[in-house]
C-alpha cells in the first residue's frame, strides 16, 4: 500500500516544491496540500484543500483523507507575507497547536515532520562554536520567528510524548538561500548597499533551497525519527559573503543599528526582526554530522556555493566583479613593474 501524505502551507515555497517532488514518487499514493491560498506551482495530482490549520476542522481533513504522514513546513519567518507579526504568531503557534491536536486524534497518522530552525539556539557571545542537536540555547530567543520556533518544537515534543507510536522528525534548518526562495536574508543580500554592524563579523551558515527540499523529501520517504540540524557544510563570515556577492558593506555603529532596522522595515525594504539582529552580531553555526550520518546525505551545495549560486541565478548586479578585481590586479602589477624599471637602465643586470 502506498503512502498518503498531507502537506501544510502548500502555496508557499517549501510546501509547494515538496509536493511537486513527492508527485514523482510512485510510492506516494495520495497527496493533499492544505493552505489558505491557491498553490503557485503547477501541481498535477496533489489535491488542494483550502483550509486554515488554525481551525479545528483540520481533524476532519486528516480523517477523511486517511493520511499516514503529515509534513508541517508552514512556519513563516517574515511577518509581512501573512499580515503582521500578530497574524504570523497566530499562524505559527496556534496553527501548530491545532494541527498537533488534530494529529493526536487521527490514529492513522504514523509520521509527522516539522520544520524548525537553527535560530532556536539563539545567538550569544557565550555560544559554543558549533551547536549539536542536544545542546540548548545560552540565550533563549524572546522575539519573532525564533521564539515561535521554540514554541512549535515544544508542542511537537509534547505531541511526541502523547503519541509515542508516531515517528516525529524535527528538522532545524539554517538560513535558507537560493535562486527562488524569498526570505529576510535574500532581501538583505539584495540591497544595493548592505548595512552591517560596525566592529562585528558573524559566521554565517546557509542551506540551499534544493538541499532543503531534498532533505524534506527524504524525511518523508525514509524513516528518520529525531531532531536534525539541516545546514550546509562550511561557513563564511558576513564580510566574506558580501565580498562574494560583490556588494559593498556600510558599517553602522551599534547604537544606530536598531533605528536603521526600523527605518528599513518602515520603507518595506527588509523586515529585520530584532531576534535576527543578534544573529548579525554573534552568528551561529550548527553541526550537521547527525544528518549526514543518519540520512546518509551529502549536501550538494556548501555555504559558499549557495551564495555564488544565489548571486548568479538572481543576476545580482555586483558592484565589484571578479573580472574587475582581476583587471585591477593586472594594472597594479604593470604599474609596479614600470615604476621599478624606470630608474634602472634597461637591461641592466646585477
Amino acid at each position: 500500500m502506498g503512502r498518503r501524505v498531507l502537506i501544510t502551507g502548500v502555496s508557499r515555497f517549501l510546501g509547494g516544491h515538496l509536493a511537486r517532488r513527492l508527485e514523482q514518487d510512485p510510492d506516494v499514493e495520495y497527496l493533499v496540500g492544505v493552505d489558505l491560498d491557491e498553490p503557485e506551482l503547477d501541481l498535477e495530482r496533489t489535491e488542494y484543500v483550502r483550509a486554515d490549520i488554525r481551525n479545528p476542522l483540520v481533524v476532519k481533513i486528516l480523517q477523511t483523507t486517511e493520511v499516514d504522514t503529515v509534513v508541517h513546513p508552514n512556519i513563516v519567518a517574515t511577518p509581512p507575507r501573512v499580515g503582521g507579526r500578530a497574524a504570523m504568531k497566530e499562524l505559527n503557534v496556534i496553527g501548530t497547536l491545532q494541527l498537533f491536536a488534530a494529529c493526536q486524534k487521527a490514529e492513522r497518522v504514523k509520521r509527522v515532520i516539522v520544520k524548525s530552525t537553527t535560530a532556536v539556539y539563539g545567538a550569544d557571545p557565550r555560544d559554543p562554536s558549533l551547536f549539536t542537536e542536544d545542546m540548548s540555547a545560552r540565550s533563549v530567543p524572546r522575539t519573532g520567528y525564533s521564539k515561535d520556533s521554540v514554541e512549535v518544537e515544544q508542542y511537537a515534543r509534547d505531541f511526541g510524548r502523547r503519541r509515542p507510536d508516531v515517528d516525529l522528525t524535527i528538522l532545524r534548518f539554517a538560513n535558507f538561500l537560493g535562486p527562488d526562495i524569498e526570505t529576510t536574508l535574500t532581501r538583505y543580500f539584495s540591497l544595493p548597499l548592505i548595512p552591517t554592524p560596525l566592529g562585528f563579523d558573524p559566521r554565517i551558515q546557509l542551506i540551499h533551497e534544493e538541499d532543503a527540499i531534498e532533505v524534506l523529501d527524504r524525511a518523508v520517504r525514509e524513516h528518520h525519527p529525531g531532531i536534525y540540524n539541516v545546514a550546509a557544510d562550511g561557513v563564511v563570515y558576513l564580510s566574506q559573503a558580501l565580498r562574494t556577492l560583490g556588494r559593498p558593506p556600510v558599517p553602522v555603529p551599534l547604537p544606530l543599528v536598531r533605528p536603521l532596522g526600523a527605518v528599513l522595515r518602515r520603507v518595506g525594504l527588509v523586515d529585520y526582526a530584532t531576534d535576527q539582529l543578534r544573529f548579525l552580531l554573534y552568528g551561529r553555526v550548527a553541526d550537521n554530522g547527525r544528518l549526514k550520518d543518519g540520512f546518509g546525505y551529502r549536501f550538494r551545495h556548501t555555504t559558499r556555493d549557495t551564495l555564488l549560486d544565489f548571486a548568479e541565478k538572481r543576476r545580482l548586479r555586483r558592484l565589484i566583479t571578479p573580472e574587475r578585481v582581476e583587471e585591477w590586479e593586472r594594472d597594479v602589477y604593470e604599474f609596479l613593474r614600470r615604476r621599478s624599471e624606470e630608474p634602472a637602465p634597461a637591461g641592466g643586470r646585477e
Partner: peptide, 25 residues
C-alpha cells in the same frame, strides 16, 4: 616579481571572498 604577483593575487582573492575559514571561523 613572482612574490609581488603572488601577493596581488591573494589580495584579489580576499577581495572577492574566495578563501576558506574553518567551522570555528
Amino acid at each position: 616579481a613572482e612574490a609581488v604577483r603572488e601577493v596581488l593575487r591573494s589580495l584579489a582573492r580576499r577581495m572577492t571572498g574566495d578563501y576558506e575559514v574553518d567551522r570555528y571561523g
